[in-house]
Each structure stands twice: as C-alpha cells, then as structure tokens.
C-alpha cells in the first residue's frame, strides 16, 4: 500500500468472523499531511467490514476535529488499504481451509 504517512493497524486479533473489528490509526509522518496536525496520539475505533465505508469514517474524524478537512482523503485511503488487506487475508484463509 502507498505510504500515506497515516498508519492503520488492527487493534485486536482478527478471528476472521466478526464483521465489526477494532482498528487503530496514527500519524507516522505528519509532513505528508496537508493540514496542520495536532499531536493527539493513536485513534482507536471500530469498523464494520461489511457495511461501512472508509471515507465516511475518515470524514467523521474530520468532523470530530481529529484531522484537518484537507486530510480526509488521505485518512480514508489509509483505512481503505488496511480494510482491503484484512478482507484479502480472510478470503485467503477461507480458500486455504477449503
């Protein structure tokens, strides 16, 4: 995945079954962000792999004051990349089991 300066990782072990999973997001390189970033730390949140859209969650972070409006897309892309990886891993596990 592209290095967006924003890192997203699992905040819990993926059991491969739950639709809603805990993720943790933090800024690794604030120079890659357009807006001024206030050092706030890692943001933990739950994400529904089946129903939710990464860009919508990113927009909620912007509206909550965690990121500047101009960085919403970057945050959304970072979440999308991680979600795609989680889904890919799950599919691979299912294929391997079959």
């Amino acid at each position: 995945a592209e290095d967006t300066g924003v890192r997203v990782e699992l905040a819990e072990e993926d059991d491969g079954k739950k639709a809603s999973i805990a993720l943790k997001l933090w800024v690794e390189d604030h120079k890659k962000l357009k807006g001024k970033y206030k050092e706030s730390g890692a943001i933990e949140f739950t994400f529904d792999l089946e129903k939710e859209v990464p860009e919508v969650v990113a927009q909620e972070m912007v509206e909550s004051g965690l990121f500047h409006e101009s960085d919403g897309k970057t945050v959304g892309k970072s979440i999308r990349d991680r979600v795609a990886l989680i889904k890919w891993r799950r599919e691979r596990t299912v294929s391997a089991a079959a």
């Binding site: 933090w26 690794e28 706030s40 730390g41 943001i43 949140f45 739950t46 969650v57 965690l66």
Partner: peptide, 27 residues
C-alpha cells in the same frame, strides 16, 4: 488519564491514546 474519548455526532466513538515511541517512524 492520557486516554481521551471523542464521540462523533453519528454515535461513533474514537478513543485517543498515546502512540508508543517504538511504533513511531524515525524521522
């Protein structure tokens, strides 16, 4: 506490906590 909770109007909860130093990329 260093942990803060930010609740969005849509009801989503964001929990903000310090990032461990070891996980930060070296600049």
């Amino acid at each position: 506490s260093a942990t803060a909770q930010v609740v969005h109007s849509a009801g989503r909860r964001f929990i903000v906590s310090p990032v461990p130093e070891a996980r930060l990329k070296e600049q």
